[in-house]
């Protein structure tokens, strides 16, 4: 069979696309989402440790870092990030605690907010990691590959909520130039990637439901259903919604009776490490992508300019310097 140049191009493009785009890849948004209804969360006040936190720690215990000591400081700095002596700390995010229940007091009333990775639709942590250690999965979760992570903590810097946490003394950097580059491994919630790939719910979701039954804080499911449910309840019950537009959209939606502006103000006053800013722009969408379009356009302009320029210059040098130019 004869293949024309055009046919060859089409076949090659098709083959290449099949390598790039997985059949089950849910384009941008991901398959699942979680609704976190903070109107129902009491921070497990009657329990020793919040159920979601306990379940998360139990689920991921085997993956917690075991740093090699002594840990080298991040030369030329004299510091390093080591949480290994504070493994029991459950009131904040650490490499050993990937979800925590945050408390904010607004007008004398306590509000409890389970906090973990929001799993953004266009995650700056994934797009920005220079080593490709972070990936976005078709299920919608952003996952850190502990074997590839250098612990530069760029993901924490570019995350609007500064979620990933670093542990020094572990990871691939120890085998390269541990004194001069890298800082450990970053850890955060991956939405129980192994469980959700099997069709199971994340451990925190299951644990919360076991305690609160139908009144559970977490609802996990197909993204479309979760978004529908959240918006419906927002309208019907006059609640406030968070996570649907922040950073260009996420897979985690919060419902609250109190405006999130007030919650954020309370967290700022409390000097909490983790805040809930309402106006969160996705820099990839607002800043980088318009320039990206200009880059692609100018690439085409370069091609057009080259073709026109080459034809014009050939005419100018008609019968001219072929021998010389051929070198």
């Amino acid at each position: 069979m004869d293949i024309t140049r055009r046919g060859f191009f089409l076949i090659s493009t098709g083959l290449l696309s099949s390598l790039i785009i997985k059949e089950n890849a849910h384009a941008v948004e991901g398959r699942y989402a979680t609704l976190v209804d903070i109107t129902r969360c009491d921070g497990c006040s009657s329990e020793q440790i919040p159920k979601c936190v306990e379940a998360c720690r139990e689920q991921n215990r085997k993956r917690f870092p075991e740093p090699k000591k002594p840990i080298l400081p991040y030369w030329p700095r004299k510091t390093y990030e080591d949480w290994s002596d504070r493994r029991d700390k459950i009131d904040t995010l650490t490499p050993y605690n990937w979800i925590f229940v945050q408390k904010a007091t607004i007008e004398g009333r306590d509000i409890f907010i389970p906090r973990r990775c929001m799993h953004c639709d266009n995650p700056p942590c994934v797009r920005g990691c220079p080593f490709g250690a972070l990936t976005k999965r078709p299920q919608g979760n952003s996952v850190i590959n502990e074997g590839l992570c250098f612990g530069g903590a760029k993901c924490r810097d570019v995350c609007p909520w500064h979620i990933p946490q670093r542990q020094a003394g572990v990871g691939i950097y120890l085998h390269m130039l541990p004194k001069y580059a890298g800082g450990g491994v970053m850890y955060k919630c991956d939405l129980c990637k192994d469980r959700i790939e099997k069709g199971e719910e994340p451990a925190c979701v299951v644990a919360c439901r076991q305690r609160l039954k139908d009144n559970a804080v977490f609802t996990f499911g197909e993204r479309r259903d979760i978004y529908g449910l959240a918006k419906q309840r927002k309208e019907k019950e006059g609640l406030y919604l968070y996570g649907d537009i922040q950073n260009g959209g996420t897979s985690t939606l919060y419902l609250s009776k109190v405006p999130f502006e007030a919650i954020n103000r309370a967290l700022i006053e409390k000097k909490d490490r983790f805040k809930m800013p309402v106006d969160v722009k996705n820099k990839i969408q607002t800043t980088f992508n318009p320039i990206g379009k200009a880059v692609l356009s100018m690439g085409f302009m370069g091609m057009a300019g080259a073709i026109v320029g080459a034809i014009i210059s050939k005419r100018v040098h008609k019968g001219g310097d072929e021998d010389v130019r051929k070198d």
Binding site: G128, K283, T287, F288, I291, G292, A294, V295, L296, M298, G299, F300, M301, G302, M303, G305, A306, I307, G309, A310, I311, S313, K314, E322, R325, K326, D327
Partner: peptide
Amino acid sequence: TTVHYTASIFFLMVVVFHIFYHSIRKEF
């Protein structure tokens, strides 16, 4: 990243120009 993206406008343009311009002119 913004500066990196901006510089790549010129870089990509010149790479593409170089390949096409000299190929068409058979300057190898």
